[in-house]
């Protein structure tokens, strides 16, 4: 398994904890970077702010992106990612509570690779996390490393 990281963008610490738990229950051991708002997510990706000096050549293998985020919402983050040459090919999975049609349309419209609704039932969530890990970290071939 690749040592490349997973970037989890989630403001709710409970949800973050449960997501990490669900991933761990599926033996997904990649580095998991958790940021709590949209700005932090972008700072991490581009080595700015609190993440200044980060080796930005190291990009996460997949970004798990919530939509309801403080400061800059998930769709804003996605728009920025797709707009930047360095990140425009990064796999982004929207992981959110809502299955509102407008969110799905906007997410796919901005170039999300996947849209996953977090189930209330934790067993179902674990099952979903397993599927996600298997697919994005194992089956899916990431784009060539950008410089």
């Amino acid at each position: 398994m690749s040592s490349r990281s997973i970037l989890l963008v989630e403001d709710n610490p409970d949800d973050a904890a449960l997501t990490i738990r669900a991933l761990k229950k599926n033996q997904i051991v990649n580095d998991l970077v958790v940021v709590h708002d949209g700005i932090q997510a972008l700072d991490y990706l581009y080595g700015e702010g609190a993440f200044a000096g980060r080796d930005t050549r190291q990009m996460p293998q997949v970004i798990l992106l919530d939509l309801n985020l403080p400061k800059l919402d998930g769709l804003g983050v996605l728009r920025r990612i797709r707009g930047e040459e360095r990140t425009r090919m990064l796999p982004v999975v929207i992981l959110t509570s809502s299955n509102e049609e407008q969110d799905r349309v906007a997410g796919y419209g901005l170039g999300a690779n996947s849209y996953v609704r977090k189930p209330v039932d934790f067993d179902a969530f674990v099952a979903a996390a397993a599927q996600l890990g298997l697919y994005w970290l194992v089956l899916n071939q990431p784009p060539p490393r950008s410089i």
């Binding site: 949800d15 449960l18 738990r21 509570s97 509102e100 977090k118 209330v120 934790f122 067993d123």
Partner: peptide
Amino acid sequence: VSHDLRTPLRTIDGFSHA
């Protein structure tokens, strides 16, 4: 509702499970 009402439910269920 879609966004916010379900999140705490997930927390309750998730941590009950934990």
